[in-house]
Design a protein around this nucleic acid. Sequence first.
DNA 1: ATGTCCATTATTAATGGA
Length: 279
Amino acid sequence: MRIATWNINSIRSRHARAIDWMVREDVDVVAFQEIKCTEAQFPLAPFEEAGYEVVLHGLNQWNGVAIASRHPIEDVEIGFPGQPGFLKGHEGPDAPLEARAIGATIEGLRLWSLYVPNGRALDDPHYAYKLDWLATLAADTRDWLAADPELPLALMGDFNIAPLDSDVGDPSFIPGLSTHISPPERTAFSAFEKAGLRDVVRPIRPDGFTFWDYKQLRFPRNEGMRIDFILGSQAFADRVVDASIHREERKGDGPSDHVPVVVDLDLGLEDDDDRPMIF
DNA sequence: ATGTCCATTATTAATGGA
């Protein structure tokens, strides 16, 4: 079983490229972020023709998350418990939720596609929202794993945080001045580890960025950021056999500014064709 | 030169978000 997370930056602009990659790379499940459309606008037909079922949450041209799968999708959840909302100029407990989280169960795996708020600036209300959003999700993670310590859970998405200094290759991110690298954001990220998750890609692929800004020739200069992650519980991590960052997807015509991050799992499925059949 | 891209609102250009 091969699963991926990918901030696609408009599924309407890039669905052909996305599906080409999914078929070519034999990907079973993709958690998409920034689909930038509503359910009525989502290009379902080409996914279905390629053999993928899709569940999604999209409210408008901003944000939007989806999960596409070759296997049956069960127990879909829009948003996580206690998820805070945000509306510029209308901050507070009554702010509406944004389309940033969708959860589903596939082959017994509990998967979340997550688009963590950007934060915008250290003194922007969006930054406090980002930290609140992350803290609530970490608390939920603790609850989910307390209820079932053997749950194969993965949080997949664009976390908009570079946990390590080596994850920062873009010189416009300046310590003390920029989001994505501030100590409170890094502490918020480490809370997922305390809750029982770990980055299941980094031990296998310690190097590489997942995002390069369109501006300033960031990709040709390889001035990127590592901000897209798959965080798995013990039971999920136990099934991981490989991982990869598909840097080639930043090349060519009309790429997203993010690339797919992939993990390969051994679920012991009889129809898993990644292993030779022995009769 | 922010060496850009996307979607929307508005009517060929401005806005907001990243």
